[in-house]
Design a protein around this nucleic acid. Structure first.
Lengths: 344, 344
DNA sequence: TAAACCAGTTGTAACGTTTCACAATTCGCG
DNA sequence: CGCGAATTGTGAAACGTTACAACTGGTTTA
């Protein structure tokens, strides 16, 4: 076949546009656009014809054009923390999110949210330049300035963790109070008499939930308890371990530890080992976990599972429903702890 | 001041565009566009005036408009694996990437790359719909079909891991051969006489590098060695542990384990514990690690550190240079192991 | 019989940017 | 002085989409 550089329509396999579909079906571009969005003003038969042609041609709407025209970005952004109490938190959350979002046309972008820097700056930039349709973030504070700003401007978001604002907003959370209570009850059932807890930094909402669950459960049972004053969950693992070691060597050390996450649990275990304590004998632990890592730790310890992947996909689902105009007050979800006690 | 709904220019604080800057400076939109991209055709003084005005007005180019016009998305996409041999791999890599990309105007999007599904489909979609300017992925195979397709179409990418294609392409890798050799040498130095290794699946390039380093170092030293045949690094942790346990109970079990990653190391440790073996006494381990988790494991074991965050930022850097038109052959980087041997 | 209505469809404009082709000025230099 | 070339700038078009207003032709309504 001789080359026909100009006459042949498929000289360069250009990406099909609405124009392509319009030419193929004989309808106008506007009609095609409407047909593809299932606009009831377009006859059913037309919609079907157009849909079939679009499928055959492999038409996919151009994101840039749509975004320019509508202002909607089709992008959901996650504020990414460098550190977390769980190993594998980020991977699980992101996988949950993108699982729930596949096939929806939305894509997930991440932006680093460095501790110690201005956490608001990145949010500001996203709002000002309309870089996303909605925002996800974790480690929510009681009066989180991000939540305040987003609510003021009406920008959609789903937080991991509740706030204490009176205006409702979408969130997904884990029942940390129930976790702390369950952990305390388990340690008491194993005969422990002096319980210890290491908390995250005070500003996070879930810190208060943990504290409340721990303290109230201990008080109700009339059992001795303490909250480690020198370190937080965000302290370097070495410092956490050192704090536990020091306390172990002082008078009347705890014999039951509630550990909020894997780093704390492993640090506590190492401190126990370093001071000659045997887990299960001299002290017991209950740890919140998000990964299967504790299956490989010997001796086995009691754990409570927080499903971060489900958290991620729920956050995505709520965001979509929020973008769909649903009432934010209805878009909340509290996950309950699922306990995994060892025998004996 | 009385309200002047129509005359006042700042009735609605609309996002500044090129138009805004043009009106403010008295130049034409075209001129402003050129001035902002430092086009030499525009007088130096004009460029400065325009830049100052743009800064004052808080002008930021609209991504959608630019993308529609130029076809460039300003987006770099990471193919996200659900599983990895390291705990925290994803978080570290993504943080490295976004660290290196901050301030460049590029954003990072992630897309889940489910094992067991067609790994090419997602790449196809990204290419066909021009969803990104470049791609990052991990777990590279010797003749990785993704690499093949991307090279054929000339689409920019940086792989984590080398390939065996003759055409050069940008990659970042860790010297797994050197790691395996170092691990073998260390175990021999500790008096071990029968070494064992669990490999990732055969198709990955780094599997071959590990195998080569392990086998050749053992042969050179004339030491007994074996590669666990029943499981791979991607087997469930429970299966890995079971395989190690079974081997421990059979004749002439290994006394030195090279562990490629944290999951393998912890599984091996648990299997050792379950079969009455004491690490450091009955057997030794050398583990590759990416997180500080081994600082908390007792007894302490020898580790080799792979810096995943640096890997991420290097991948980003190479991608930018590739997009800048640099020769792909020059855009490679091999990280060397850094050993962390315990005393004694 | 004309006006009003309806379902179904269409043309035009606009989103904000870059780029093409050209225009207005100034300059070098014989 | 005058001509071509450089310097500096401009208007218009285009990227692909959707919103808006308007147009058809047929049917109902007053």
């Amino acid at each position: 076949m001789p080359p026909s550089p100009d006459s042949s329509p498929d000289v360069k396999a250009r990406k099909p546009t609405l124009r392509t579909v319009a030419d193929a079906t004989g309808f106008a571009v506007t009609t095609v656009s409407r047909a593809l969005s299932d606009d009831p003003r377009i006859a059913k038969s037309t919609r079907e014809t157009v849909a079939a042609a679009a499928r055959k041609l492999g038409y996919v709407p151009d994101r840039a054009a749509r975004r320019l025209r509508t202002g909607r970005t089709q992008v959901l952004t996650v504020l990414l923390n460098a550190e977390h109490e769980f190993l594998g938190f980020t991977a699980e959350l992101l996988n949950g999110l993108s699982d729930a979002l596949r096939g929806t046309g939305y894509s997930v972008t991440i932006v680093a949210d460095r501790i110690g820097e201005d956490r608001m700056e990145v949010v500001d930039t996203i709002l000002r330049n309309r870089l996303a349709d909605a925002l996800f973030f974790t480690r929510t504070e009681a009066f989180d300035p991000r939540v305040r700003l987003l609510m003021e401007t009406g920008f959609p978001f789903v937080s991991h963790g509740r706030t204490e604002f009176t205006t409702p907003h979408p969130w997904v959370d884990f029942d940390n109070t129930a976790f702390a209570r369950a952990a305390v009850e388990r340690l008491i059932a194993r005969g422990r008499t002096r319980l210890s807890l290491i908390l995250p930094e005070d500003r996070f909402t879930f810190t208060q939930h943990l504290r409340y669950g721990f303290v109230s459960a201990c008080r109700e049972a009339g059992i001795a308890h303490e909250i480690e004053p020198r370190v937080t969950l965000d302290s370097p693992a070495a410092e956490i371990a050192e704090a536990v070691r020091r306390r172990r060597r002082s008078a009347d050390p705890p014999d039951g530890y509630v550990c909020v996450g894997e780093v704390a649990a492993l640090s506590t275990l190492s401190a126990l080992a370093d001071t000659g304590g045997r887990p299960g004998v001299d002290a017991d632990l209950v740890a919140k976990r998000a990964s299967p890592i504790f299956d490989m730790i010997r001796p086995r310890i009691d754990t409570v599972f927080e499903d971060i992947r489900a958290t991620g996909s729920t956050m995505a689902e709520l965001a979509l429903r929020r973008l769909d105009g649903e009432d934010p007050a209805a878009l909340t979800r509290l996950f309950s702890p699922s306990c995994d006690w060892q025998q004996g």
